Simulated assay, not measured.
Amino acid sequence: MLSSTPKELSEPLQLDLAEVIAKYHLNNKHSLRKENLESYALVVTSLFKHERKENYNIEKGGDRKNPGREIANKIGNLKQRKRKRDNKENEYQRNIQYYNHEPEKIQKRKVLQNGMLNEDPWAVVLEQWKCSFDVRKTELLSGQKADHFIVHYPSLHC
C-alpha cells in the first residue's frame, strides 16, 4: 500500500528541478551570487514543503570555498558544456575560414594529406568529406594500391 504522506523528491527529480532553475538563471542573470542561490533554494522549499534547503544550496564556509549542492553544481556544469560547445564551434569557424581562402583543389588535397577527415566537431568532418570527395574518388579509381592509399591518408582507416 502506498503511503499518503508526502516525502522529499527523489534525487533524479531534484536534479531535474535544479536543471530548470539553472537554465532559468543562465538565461536571465549574468553572474551567480550568494543571494541568487539562497533565493532559489527558498523558492523550492516554499513550493515543495517537504524539500530541504540543504539539498539545493550549501553556503561556503569552513572547508568549503564555494557554495555548493544541486543548483550551483548544475549552473557550473551547464556553463562548462556551453564553453566547450562554443570552443568547438569557434575552431570549426576558423577551419572553414582558413580553407575557404585556398583554391578548391589545393584545399581538398590538404584536407586529405593532413589526415583531418575524422576530427571533431562533426560538422567539420562532414564538410571535409564533402570537399575531398573528388580527390578521393579520382585516386581510388586510378588503380593505386589500397595499402598505398591508406599509408598516405591514415584517417580513412579509422
Rank of each mutant, 00 (worst) to 15 (best):
Y24S: 03
V135Q: 07
K7P: 01
E102W: 12
K74D: 06
L15I: 09
N28G: 01
N57G: 00
Y92R: 03
Y153K: 14
E70D: 10
V135A: 12
Y40C: 00
Y92L: 10
Q97E: 09
D134E: 15
R83P: 00
I96C: 04
S10G: 07
L37A: 10
V124C: 03
C158H: 15
W129S: 03
Y153F: 08
E104G: 00
C158K: 05
E51W: 01
M116W: 09
A146F: 02
N66S: 12
Y99C: 05
K108M: 09
Y153H: 09
L32P: 03
E35W: 11
S155L: 01
R52H: 14
L2F: 11
V124R: 15
S132G: 13
E59W: 02
P154N: 11
L42N: 14
E102L: 15
R83A: 11
S10R: 09
T5N: 14
F48M: 06
T45E: 11
L15M: 05
K110M: 15
S46K: 13
E102M: 11
R69D: 05
K60D: 01
A146H: 12
N28S: 15
R109Y: 05
I96A: 10
P6Q: 06
D16R: 12
K34G: 04
R81V: 08
S155N: 04
V125A: 12
M1S: 09
R33I: 02
V135P: 01
R94E: 15
E38Y: 00
G62P: 00
S39M: 10
P103H: 15
D120W: 06
V111M: 08
I58F: 00
N114Y: 07
K84D: 13
A18C: 03
E51H: 03
S10I: 11
D134W: 00
E35K: 13
A123C: 13
E89L: 06
I21C: 13
G61M: 07
I71G: 10
D147E: 13
I96S: 13
E54W: 10
E8R: 07
K82H: 03
E54R: 12
H148Y: 14
H157T: 15
L141N: 14
I21K: 02
Q80K: 14
L13C: 14
R83E: 12
W122H: 08
N27S: 10
S31W: 00
H101Y: 08
E11K: 06
F149W: 07
E38A: 08
E102V: 15
K88V: 12
I150P: 02
Q14H: 04
Y153P: 02
I21M: 05
S132T: 01
K49R: 06
F48E: 00
K23C: 05
V20E: 09
K82N: 06
V44N: 04
L15G: 00
K74E: 05
E70S: 14
G61N: 07
A123I: 06
I106A: 10
A18H: 02
A18Y: 00
S4V: 08
L2S: 15
K53N: 10
L141I: 10
Y92I: 04
K88S: 02
E102I: 08
H157Y: 13
E119M: 11
S155M: 01
P103A: 11
N73V: 03
K49A: 04
P12K: 06
N90K: 06
L37N: 11
N73Y: 01
L117D: 02
E59V: 03
K34N: 05
R85I: 13
C158E: 04
A123F: 12
N95K: 14
C131F: 12
L17Q: 07
S4G: 04
